[in-house]
């Protein structure tokens, strides 16, 4: 565990807590893409199946369980408890255009052609693009609440910090995984436009509004 990895995980944890608190406190999931949240639940489910096959550390196990519970908790709040507040008119990104290519890519490019490995690879590919329905929703409405912006910033920062973790591990441990690294770069690049708006607008106290 290095500092980049730890900060990355904390940023990830912060993101999911911000999202849950936002929905819970405002009793509303307005502005949040249910489609992105479905994709994240699929990502955690496919990746953390190894919870039952291999033990790594208490930290690892606890974090995996937290991400799974938070993810399904978010789906529960969005699609059941606060269903009436879900803005489905603006959440129209076709997720099959993301899921199918990720399935095909996972079957073609993986470290080992076994069920768990392919599911892990699928989750890595899917995670890299899972935020697109949410970013599409923000671009469609032309704005995002500050709290939604903080969520997106924390979520984007997490994989960016993982990139530094992978650079560190490459030099310190002679350890790297090209599948995770390339997907992580794609994932971080997708947030760049948002990062720019966040830093130039939200941090200066303004609402995130896209230029007309």
């Amino acid at each position: 565990m290095n500092i980049f990895r730890l900060l990355g995980d904390l940023s990830h944890l912060l993101a999911v807590i911000i999202l849950l608190l936002k929905i819970w406190k405002t009793r509303s999931c307005a502005g949040i893409s249910g489609r992105s949240q479905i994709l994240f639940a699929a990502v955690y489910t496919a990746r953390y199946l190894d919870l039952v096959t291999s033990y790594i550390s208490a930290y690892n196990t606890v974090m995996k369980i937290v991400f799974l519970v938070a993810s399904y908790g978010t789906l529960y709040l969005m699609f059941l408890k606060f269903k009436a507040t879900y803005d489905h008119n603006h959440d129209t990104f076709r997720i099959e255009f993301l899921v199918l290519p990720c399935v095909i890519l996972a079957l073609l490019i993986n470290h080992d052609f076994s069920a768990l490995e392919i599911l892990w690879t699928f989750s890595i590919y899917l995670e890299s693009v899972a935020i697109l329905p949410q970013l599409f929703m923000v671009s469609k409405t032309g704005e995002a609440e500050s709290i939604t912006s903080h969520y997106l910033f924390a979520l984007g920062t997490y994989r960016g910090l993982y990139l530094f973790n992978w650079i560190y591990r490459y030099y310190a441990e002679d350890h790297y995984d090209l599948i995770a690294i390339i997907a992580g770069i794609v994932q971080t690049v997708l947030y760049c436009d948002f990062f720019y708006l966040y830093i130039t607008k939200v941090l200066k106290g303004k609402k995130l509004q896209l230029p007309a």
Binding site: I56, K64, E117, W166, R169, D174, H175, Y176
Partner: peptide, 10 residues
């Protein structure tokens, strides 16, 4: 370098 899967990560 190795190209091992980083399964200790989240």
């Amino acid at each position: 370098g190795t190209n091992k899967t980083l399964k200790d990560e989240l």
